[in-house]
Each structure stands twice: as structure tokens, then as C-alpha cells.
Amino acid sequence: MQKRSIISTLLLALLLALGSTALLADSHGGADPRAGQVEQAINDAEAAREKAGSVDGEWRDTAKMIESARKALAAGEYDKAMKLAREAHQQGVLGYEQAMSQQELRIPSYLKY
């Protein structure tokens, strides 16, 4: 009884997994065209992250997002990968802009000299 139920669970899970892979693959029309776009988006994000880092403006989670995007791309999850890459890209741009806006030291007015 126990063994059989485990086997059935596994089988069911396998079926579902296969089904979902098929669905995913189907919804993205086979293989590559989107993979290239996602890869480009990831490269853009990485460049933006490095640019922010070059002025000490990198944010905490940007590199993690890019890493997750790479993993999602490898797993064929293009939508997820694209979303992560775009968000990381935005973070890189914003972090750079933030650092540039802070180039000059401004002593706050509550400190009385």
C-alpha cells in the first residue's frame, strides 16, 4: 500500500512536470528566438550593474536578480528571466543616478557650524 502510493505520487508529479514543460515550451514556440532576447537583457542588466558599482552606487539585490535571471533562462523560463533582467537593469540605472546625485558632500542644515 505504502509503496504503491509513493509510486503513484511520483508518477503523477512526473506527469504534471512533463505537462508543464510541454506547455511552457509550446507557449514560447519551441526554442531560441526569445532566449537571445533574454540573454541580451541580462547582458544589459549586468552592464548597468557594473556601471553603478563603478561609482559605489550598486544596490544590494541587483547581482542576485541577475543570477536568478540566468538560472531562469537556463531553465527555459523566459518570462521570469526577462522580468528579472529588466528589474535588475532598472536597479543598475537608478543606483548609478543616485550615486551621481550624491557626488557633492552636503552638510545638513541641522548641524550648526
Binding site: 500500500m1 505504502q2 502510493s5 509513493i6 503513484s8 505520487t9 503523477l12 508529479a13 504534471l16
Partner: peptide, 13 residues
């Protein structure tokens, strides 16, 4: 076991 199996399957779905 059967319950948990159904649960797992439902969860996955």
C-alpha cells in the same frame, strides 16, 4: 498516504 498524495497533486496543480 492517499490523502497526502491527493494533496501533493493538488498543490502542484
Amino acid at each position: 498516504r492517499i490523502k497526502s498524495m491527493i494533496g501533493t497533486a493538488a498543490g502542484l496543480t
